[in-house]
């Protein structure tokens, strides 16, 4: 058996990774960051990452491309299904089979829940889920957990608030599944119409202390170590007045910081629109850009582990 059990492994759901796996990935990411550029540049040399983005993406795709480039590998792929055979009606199955022949690892974003699981059944090479409908976005959750770990020194014992669109936000579900492996308290704050989907958290409710609120109450704010902000998507509201009514309620600005713990960390998977005031960017509480940087490093580490049998020369 390989020393590195992430070798050739699919990343479909964060539920496929134990707490030990996640902690090991964080340790490997720390190790990876210390490597010299020339050594990093050998880890993916001659290898190809194939990406298929059936939905828009900026950070996820660019961070994977950038990560692969830092390993000395190359990336090929489709970002606009309208200019490919997908527009002609080619199935996901056929597209995956073809991409599987041209690449060593496939990064997939697709609007259907379960799409990566299906792709992983078809492809011989590993599939990395970069967003499957409103189901999951596991590497985002891994980098979120890594960010929390780096910024707070630990994940256990923290009180974490997640605010915004909890119903459709795939990053939220992967994050919750990841957090369920640790001993944390989670406050979920959303309008009732965008509350968490019960059918998607059934299995973690035994392990995770979840409390739900409709507003960012002062009493909640002052308990939080982390506030994870997600975008409230206008298009989800059937009534625009309803959207206008709720959108300001969840805005994070200086008045929110004043009511919070002095060392609260504000996170966001990005892109943000107006849910975090730009003045927050300058504060030490804002860690969302660090989060994006950690994302590239963690993804480069994941690619290293997937593509190499023993990249860190373990015995």
């Amino acid at each position: 058996m390989s020393l590195n059990h992430f070798y050739k492994k699919d990343i479909v759901s964060i539920n496929d990774f134990s707490r030990d796996d996640l902690n090991r990935i964080f340790k490997y990411t720390d190790n990876f960051k210390l490597l010299d550029h020339s050594i990093k540049g050998e880890l993916g040399k001659g290898r190809t990452l194939g990406y298929l983005f059936y939905e828009p993406s900026t950070r996820t795709r660019m961070s994977f491309e950038s990560a692969m480039a830092s390993l000395g590998g190359s990336s090929i792929g489709i970002v606009d299904s309208k200019i490919s055979s997908i527009e002609k009606g080619e199935s996901l199955a056929d597209t995956i089979r073809i991409m599987d022949m041209y690449s060593d690892v496939i990064v997939l974003r697709h609007p259907f829940d379960g799409s990566s699981k299906f792709a992983a059944e078809l492809a011989e090479n590993p599939i990395i889920n970069a967003g499957s409908g409103s189901e999951e976005h596991p590497t985002q959750a891994m980098l979120d957990l890594y960010t929390i770990f780096k910024e707070k020194g630990n994940i256990d014992g923290l009180v974490i608030g997640i605010v915004g669109d909890l119903k459709y936000g795939r990053t939220v579900y992967s994050l919750l599944y990841g957090l369920a492996k640790y001993d944390v308290n989670v406050y979920l704050i959303s309008p009732p119409s965008l509350a968490i989907r019960k059918e998607s958290v059934y299995e973690i409710e035994k392990n995770l202390k979840l409390k739900e609120y409709n507003y960012l109450y002062d009493d909640v704010l002052k308990k939080l170590d982390i506030l994870y902000v997600t975008r409230i998507q206008k298009e989800r509201f059937p009534d625009i007045q309803e959207y206008e009514k709720v959108k300001g309620t969840y805005k994070v600005d200086s008045s929110v910081l004043e009511k919070s713990k002095i060392d609260i960390s504000i996170m966001h998977p990005l892109p943000r629109v107006d849910e975090i005031d730009y003045r927050i960017d300058e504060t030490k509480n804002a860690i969302y850009f660090k989060q994006a940087r950690y994302g590239k490093e963690l993804r480069a580490t994941l690619l290293t582990l997937i593509l190499n049998e023993n990249p860190f020369n373990e015995e």
Binding site: S13, N15, F112, D113, G114, K117, F118, S132, G133, E135, E136, R197, K198, E199, S200, Y202, E203
Partner: peptide, 17 residues
């Protein structure tokens, strides 16, 4: 996933049914 209370789970989208 639970034969007593008959709880099912889709193997693709992971939703509880």
């Amino acid at each position: 996933i639970d034969k007593k209370d008959i709880i099912l789970k889709c193997s693709y989208c992971s939703r509880i049914i």
